[in-house]
């Protein structure tokens, strides 16, 4: 079996690669979304902390 035959999947290439392609695209997108969610959560926490810090110095002055 050569590579061209392998990729042709005996005429079922669209169905087979369409299945695996979308499945792994879904996994990749999910991993990216989870990473972004963590970055966003940490950014919000730092923002909240900085704002609180400013308020505190404001009170002191």
């Amino acid at each position: 079996m050569n590579w061209a035959e392998f990729f042709a999947m005996n005429g079922y290439a669209f169905y087979v690669w369409g299945s695996y392609g979308v499945a792994f695209l879904v996994f990749l997108v999910e991993i990216m979304l989870v990473r972004n969610r963590r970055k966003k959560a940490l950014r919000n926490l730092r923002l909240m902390r900085d704002e609180m810090g400013e308020n505190r110095t404001g009170e002191a002055a």
């Binding site: 999947m9 005996n10 005429g11 079922y12 169905y15 087979v16 299945s19 695996y20 499945a23």
Partner: peptide, 14 residues
């Protein structure tokens, strides 16, 4: 099913 059955390896686990 020839080669089309290979979809099974992702379809069934998912």
């Amino acid at each position: 099913q020839s080669e089309a059955y290979r979809i099974m390896f992702i379809h069934v686990p998912a």
